[in-house]
């Protein structure tokens, strides 16, 4: 029983990370129908910014997190303006090629700058250690992840469903041309959401150094997870990816805990099965 709760807890924390990284991808796919395989590179950038700030300049962890967000968001804006925007109307093949090219470049740059080894991260003492609750050992850092992820999900839901900007985003996802005709500046909406999505990925990458690890192959290693969250969660909402990410997190951790021989096999099998049964995602929009 205790191990079941422990697995559930670890899985949820892991899922929160997946949610943070993937939610931006879900919005960009829904908004511009743009297949961005380089999304993981923004998460990696956030992770390296965080690690570099802490190691080389002694910045505290909690202060390095916003920096990771900002760095990834700025990189997102620049890339969007210089490169991505030329490809919105091109075929999916072109988009795949360009973004895979970017992934290769990101991996090479990361290897050149930081080496190919895993990056260590020293958590502040307040976030390290365990809490014991009803006989279950709760890792403090994972509690922190759950709190951060849940609060960001609440904020994002609020912005998307209660604010004028959120309404513009939803309208653009539903039908960009009609939204444009109604006076919504879809390009600007997209640029902003893209920046926030990349920033969240960067934040997720920084928060995930402890859980997901960080080395130059990061964008390739987790590409399937991010795509999976989008595939299962559908596009253009917060709840869909959140639900999907938590589900995946729990399934992955449970699979690795109870059936270690099978490992990642289960996850890929689930992905293929899901895509066969529900090609439009579990939480398909009406």
């Amino acid at each position: 029983m205790a191990s079941l709760l422990g697995v559930l807890f670890d899985g949820l924390a892991y899922g929160m990370l997946l949610f943070l990284v993937s939610v931006g991808l879900s919005v960009t796919l829904g908004l511009m129908n743009f297949v961005n395989l380089a999304h993981g590179a923004f998460a990696m950038l956030g992770g390296y910014v965080c690690v570099a700030l802490m190691q080389r300049w002694g910045v505290p962890f909690l202060a390095a997190l916003p920096a990771a967000f900002i760095a990834a968001a700025v990189a997102g804006v620049i890339l969007e303006r210089v490169l991505y925007r030329r490809f919105y109307r091109r075929s999916h093949l072109d988009q795949v090629l360009v973004t895979i090219g970017l992934v290769f470049m990101a991996i090479a740059v990361a290897t050149w700058a930081f080496g190919s080894q895993q990056q260590p991260l020293r958590l502040p003492s307040t976030l390290a250690g365990q809490w014991s609750l009803f006989g279950v050992d709760l890792n403090v850092y994972r509690c922190f992840l759950l709190v951060v992820g849940a609060s960001l999900a609440v904020v994002l839901t609020f912005v998307l469903e209660r604010t004028r900007f959120g309404a513009a985003v939803r309208a653009s996802v539903d039908d960009a041309r009609v939204a444009e005709a109604l006076g919504i500046r879809v390009a600007l909406v997209f640029q902003l959401t893209f920046a926030v999505g990349c920033g969240l990925a960067g934040l997720g990458g920084a928060l995930g150094v402890e859980v997901l690890g960080l080395d130059p192959t990061f964008p390739l290693k987790y590409i399937v997870y991010f795509l999976l969250v989008v595939a299962v969660g559908g596009t253009g909402s917060v709840k869909g990816p959140l639900f999907a990410a938590l589900l995946l997190g729990v399934a992955d951790v449970a699979g690795k805990y109870y059936l270690p021989q099978v490992g990642a096999f289960i996850l890929y099998a689930i992905m293929v099965l899901l895509l066969i049964v529900r090609p439009q995602g579990l939480v398909a929009r009406a």
């Binding site: 490169l83 030329r86 490809f87 091109r90 093949l93 072109d94 090629l97 360009v98 895979i100 090219g101 970017l102 992934v103 290769f104 470049m105 990101a106 991996i107 090479a108 740059v109 290897t111 050149w112």
Partner: peptide, 20 residues
């Protein structure tokens, strides 16, 4: 090997930019 991967990626982006 690192250079190789970088130029591979850059070449890919360039090919798609100039027409595939």
């Amino acid at each position: 090997p690192v250079y190789w991967q970088f130029w591979l990626g850059a070449g890919l982006v360039l090919i798609v930019l100039v027409g595939r």
